[in-house]
Design a protein around this nucleic acid. Structure first.
Lengths: 210, 210
DNA sequence: AGTAACTAACCTACTGGTCAGTTACTAAAA
DNA sequence: TTTTAGTAACTGACCAGTAGGTTAGTTACT
């Protein structure tokens, strides 16, 4: 009988597998309550091996957040920067793209994780603020500013209006991740995006004001 | 010299003092990372005493959430139920009242706490969903429905529109609690409320559509 | 004197992190 | 083609610090 070996050397594949398992565990339990033993087991290794790839629980956590969220922000930025369409179209498109992220549970988990652990990891909160929040808000603000400058949108306070744009999107992510598994009514992301975009475009429209 | 006693019997005052200290500690570190030793010390007692009033860390946590949030929900409900003003006025008033909660850090901490620990405390998440989210959403939905029925607001999908109302308010709470202490730009709650109410009322207005 | 609120030392389970030893794989020698 | 070091990926038992929870004893109050 050819015994398959009890384990294999897979130096290349480990980090990603560990990150994936860690994200799931952190998302489910939070940083403090997540156990490295469980993360390692989910990744098909033991705790000792985990430490060959990441120096500490804290660094693993940071790597998880950084690696998961940054590509998504860049993708959203690309949507806006590339196009030459009217601001109204771009805004609707941005909201729709964002709502698609609701389908990816791992993405929905990230905001919760960062907010949860902001007290324990100030530098992570700062990183997230600088690299995600600021860029995301900047994206929306730039779009609004463009629309105002082009005479498409009313002259509103762009800084605060961006909150009205992003707030519901964040809420839907938190809803999906934290509330739906606990009995909350399931969310139709596409319908929500349509409703939100419709309300916003009407709120920003020049119609009815000279 | 009359030594003051090393401690006093204060059976009545302890529970509230413990709850207050626990809220601060839970808000700062999350459930798992908060230490009962620290909570007790902040409340001016020792760990053993804490267990005379609460049977476990978990029950203490639940009592904190329940006791802090329920009165606030009831207060907001009262704002809407009592008045006979037009829906537009009530909506603006509701948003403004809500924004005042931003001044109370303990209140801002609650949503974060519940979302953070929803995975570890399904029954708490469920309680919060039933007693806070559903009631809050119901409040807004009822208001919108009233406005639509009265011909004040456009006929919109009230269920989704409520997300557009609440999302930015929740975002501002999380911002205040988790981001501002980590370098984020401080938020002017009143200005944000004005901007948000203005956008919403215009989004809902009948003007420009027959 | 009696009692119940309170303390502080203690117990125990847990978990992040370590490390000596084991095993899969490689590649050169036979 | 087979044998045989050599090495680095990997394991699993272990350690030490920590914190939830307990309780015997102390002290404020009636």
């Amino acid at each position: 009988m050819a015994d398959s070996p009890r384990w294999r050397r897979r130096k290349e594949a480990r980090p990603d597998e560990i990150l994936e398992a860690a994200l799931a565990e952190f998302a489910a339990r939070g940083f403090a309550a997540a156990r490295l033993h469980d993360i390692a087991a989910a990744a098909g290794i033991t705790k000792g091996t985990l430490y060959l790839y990441f120096p500490s629980k804290e660094e693993l956590f940071k790597a998880v957040v950084r690696g998961t969220i940054l590509p998504r922000v860049a993708a959203l930025e690309a949507v806006v920067e590339a196009a030459e369409a009217p601001a109204a179209v771009l805004l609707a498109s941005l909201i729709q793209r964002w709502s698609e992220l609701l389908q990816i549970p791992q993405i929905c988990a990230i905001p919760k994780l960062v907010l949860s652990e902001s007290g324990n990891f100030p530098d992570l909160a700062r990183f997230y603020y600088d690299e995600v929040i600021t860029r995301g808000l900047g994206l929306v603000r730039g779009l609004l500013r463009r629309g105002v400058a082009a005479g498409e949108f009313r002259p509103i306070d762009v800084d605060y209006a961006a909150f009205s744009v992003i707030g519901p999107l964040l809420l839907s992510m938190l809803w999906r991740h934290s509330l739906e598994p606990n009995g909350a009514a399931p969310l139709d992301g596409a319908a929500l995006a349509r409703s939100h975009a419709d309300l916003l475009l009407r709120a920003l429209s020049m119609e009815g004001r000279p």
